[in-house]
Amino acid sequence: MSDFDTVLASWGKVESNISGLGGEVLTRLFTEHPDTQQLFPKFTGIARGDLAGNAAVADHGKTVLIKLGEIIKAKGSSDTIKPLATTHANKHKIGLNNFNLITEVIIKLFGEKGIWDAAAQDALRKVMASVVNEIGCVYKQLGFAG
C-alpha cells in the first residue's frame, strides 16, 4: 500500500468533521508557532484565547484540509500542487518551512484524536515531504526564495 493510500484509508474520519478539525489545526498552529498567525492577515487581530471556536479560523482550516485531501487523492499530482504552490509563492508569500510546521501539527493532532495510528502519521510525513519538495521546485521556477 502506498503512503497516499495509507492516509486515504482513514481520510473519511477527517472529512466527517473537516470544519472542526480544520479550526483545531489552525488554532494549534497559531498557538504552538505564534509567528505563523502573521502569515494570515485576516487573523492577526484575533487574540490567541479567541482562536478556538472562531468561525473564520475554522472556515480557513476547512479549506486547508480540503486542499490537503485533494492533493492526497490526486497522489501528489503536479497538476494539483502547482496552482497551490504558485499562489502561496506569488500571493501569500508562504515559506516552505510553514508547510512542515502545519504537517507536524496535523500529525500530532490527528494522532491525539485517534484518527491516525503511527503508520498513517508516518505515511503523511512521507507524503508531505514529497509535496513540500514539489512546492519547492515550483518556488524555484518562480524565483521565490520561500
Rank of each mutant, 00 (worst) to 15 (best):
K62L: 15
F43W: 07
R48T: 07
D50Y: 00
G45T: 03
D50M: 06
K42R: 13
D35H: 14
D59W: 06
K62Q: 15
L39A: 12
T63L: 13
L65C: 08
D35E: 15
N54K: 04
T27G: 05
K42N: 10
T36E: 04
T27L: 07
F43E: 09
L51R: 05
R28G: 01
T44Y: 00
A58T: 07
T63C: 07
D59M: 08
G53Y: 12
D50Q: 10
Q38F: 05
Q38P: 00
E32T: 15
T27H: 02
F30I: 03
T63N: 13
P34H: 04
I46R: 02
V57L: 08
V57G: 01
V57D: 05
G45Q: 05
P34T: 07
G61D: 07
V57S: 03
F40T: 02
G49P: 01
T44W: 00
Q38H: 10
H60C: 02
P34N: 06
L51T: 03
L29G: 00
K67L: 13
A47Y: 00
E32Y: 01
T27K: 14
G45D: 02
R28M: 13
R28Q: 10
L68C: 12
D59K: 13
E32I: 09
E32F: 08
R48G: 15
R48A: 13
I66N: 10
K67V: 13
P34K: 11
T44S: 06
Q37T: 02
H33L: 14
H33M: 11
Q37D: 00
Q37H: 06
G53H: 10
T31D: 05
A58Y: 06
T44V: 12
V64Q: 11
F43V: 05
H60V: 06
L51S: 02
A55I: 09
G49D: 07
L29T: 04
K62S: 13
G61C: 11
E32S: 15
A56K: 10
G61Y: 11
H33A: 13
F43H: 09
V57Q: 02
R28K: 14
A58H: 07
L51K: 06
L29H: 01
P41A: 11
F30A: 03
K42L: 02
Q37N: 09
E32D: 15
N54T: 02
N54A: 05
L39M: 14
F40D: 03
D59H: 12
I66H: 08
A58L: 07
H60Q: 13
D35M: 09
G53F: 12
I66Y: 09
T36W: 01
L68D: 04
A52E: 14
H60T: 12
F40V: 08
T44F: 00
P41S: 10
K62P: 08
A56C: 03
I46Q: 03
V57T: 09
T31A: 10
G49K: 05
L65S: 08
F30E: 03
A56R: 10
